[in-house]
Nucleic acid binder design. Structure first.
Length: 267
DNA sequence: CTCCTATCCTGCGAGC
DNA sequence: TGCTCGCAGGATAGGA
């Protein structure tokens, strides 16, 4: 469900609830696993004070004194102070009665222990955050140009860069006027620069708008995002392009539905 | 290596 | 109204 802008909004909302810093009193596991088995080592964090809450790509990191806990929301995960009961799989009991409930019907998310000073294997192979300096951009162009994958599948691939999921991939390519079908190896350097620019602008706008609630995304306060009102191509197959009125097309690419305007995105 | 597919799981909307 | 089917914002393992 959540892409980078949604996870960033969850992070900010949780940070608000957790300020001033609270002590984690107990981790309540309502089941032994999500996507992976949950390590009993997570209980190490009990009794420790929360030192910070970071985001890396679509992952959240709760930083404690001696360890961190890595949380991914998968497709349907959500952190909230309000109990939902059904599918509340993990509950963090903080001091002063604050409880954070991790709810995830599909259980594609994860809840992982990270030893202080070590990098979790899930984070090991991740590419950079999408806000790239000049040299990071050049490096990325070099790497991506070697690939025969479509640009749509490419920008969603975490080994190149993190945070762009299925909605924002289609949206970024529309803004950059690049066909999602084009192979990475065939993009020009200028196209890469425009694409990286548009990804940054798009994600900034989406964060600002509180993320996209296409279906069931809610932030930590239970509120919907607003960016769905600003989407230009996603889920608009058969509807007229907002720029040129040509009908938006869709097609499955890398197993995910992809939307584009065949006129605005010809190259 | 790289690329592609199937898969994990539940809920919901479309279509009949 | 009620049923079935297919698809959903992610990411990985395993095969070609």
């Amino acid at each position: 469900m959540p892409e980078l802008p949604e996870v960033e909004n969850v992070r900010r909302g949780l940070l608000g609830l957790l300020t001033p810093p609270r002590r984690l009193e107990k981790i309540e596991l309502r089941r032994p696993d999500l996507r992976y088995p949950i390590s009993p080592k997570v209980h190490t964090a009990e009794g420790e004070e929360l030192r910070g809450l970071r985001r890396r790509g679509k992952y959240l990191l709760f930083d404690f004194e001696s360890c961190s806990i890595l949380s991914h929301l998968g497709m349907s995960g959500c952190w909230s102070p309000h109990p939902k009961d059904l599918h509340d799989h993990v509950i963090l009991h903080f001091s002063e009665g604050l409880r954070l409930h991790y709810n995830d019907p599909r259980r594609f998310g994860c809840f992982e222990f990270v030893q202080e000073g070590s990098v979790h294997p899930l984070l090991q192979k991740l590419g950079p955050e999408p806000w790239l300096d000049l040299s990071a951009r050049e490096e990325l162009v070099r790497r991506m140009k070697r690939s025969q994958q479509s640009v749509k599948v490419g920008i969603m691939d975490n080994k190149y860069l993190v945070g762009v999921g299925n909605i924002y991939a289609s949206e970024a390519l529309f803004r950059a006027k690049i066909s999602p079908l084009r192979r990475l190896s065939r993009l020009t350097r200028v196209q890469f620069q425009v694409l990286f620019d548009q990804i940054e602008i798009l994600l900034n706008e989406a964060i600002q708008a509180g993320g996209t609630t296409f279906r069931d995304y809610r932030n930590a306060q239970g509120e919907r995002g607003q960016f769905q009102n600003l989407l230009r191509v996603y889920n608009r197959a058969g509807l007229p392009c907002k720029r040129c009125r040509t009908l938006i097309r869709d097609r499955v690419l890398g197993g995910r539905n992809t939307f584009w305007c065949p006129r605005c995105q010809r190259s």
